[in-house]
């Protein structure tokens, strides 16, 4: 937080510009009806009105930031190092969900190498242990990876915590219920 930060002014300009784009371009081009419609001699509110109200809130917020709050004390300073960390977190999350999505079919494909009649993951997605494979590998990667990222080193402890946490989640969300599907089994 700083007195010298211009983050409020920048934020105000960005949101005022976005609100104008929203009100004058996105909403008119992406809704079927305008603000007010006349249908069979009856006047009704069109689909564009509510998002326009949202746009007005954004525009007002942006303008007040520019006009009244640009010199406010304790404005936040955006640290690019933190944003870099978040980018790495998102890469890790994307990798974890890719492993979660394709982990199960990949294990089945590996098993099929030694089988005469091939298995199909789609048909196994509701039977243990197959239904847990993607969630297990993806979830462990996510938890273990995030712990390692924060601690700045990869440790066996982080992986073990990931495994225990994922097993606990399987026990909570899947074992007692027949009707719940763990990720990614609703999509495969």
């Amino acid at each position: 937080m700083s007195h010298d930060s211009r983050s409020n002014l920048i934020l105000g300009i960005c949101f005022a510009a976005f609100a104008l784009l929203l009100i004058f371009i996105w909403i008119p081009f992406d809704t079927d009806t305008g603000l007010i419609e006349k249908v069979r001699r009856q006047i009704t509110i069109g689909d564009a009105l509510a998002p326009t109200v949202a746009g007005i809130f954004l525009l007002l917020g942006g303008l007040i930031l520019i006009l009244f709050e640009r010199n406010a004390p304790d404005q936040p300073e955006v640290d690019p190092v933190n944003l870099g960390f978040m980018a790495v977190v998102f890469v890790l999350l994307a990798a974890s969900f890719l492993v979660m999505r394709y982990g199960g079919p990949a294990v089945v494909a590996l098993v099929n190498l030694s089988r005469e009649t091939p298995l199909e993951y789609r048909l196994l997605r509701d039977s243990a242990p197959w239904k847990y494979t993607g969630f297990f590998f993806g979830g462990t990667l996510m938890i273990g990876g995030l712990i390692s990222l924060v601690e700045g080193r990869i440790t066996l402890r982080a992986v073990l915590i990931g495994i225990v946490a994922v097993l606990a989640m399987i026990a909570v969300y899947d074992l007692p219920f027949d009707d719940l599907l763990l990720p990614p089994n609703g999509d495969v």
Partner: peptide, 9 residues
Amino acid sequence: PAKGLISTG
């Protein structure tokens, strides 16, 4: 209030 309006919008 400005940031509140943005959040609401």
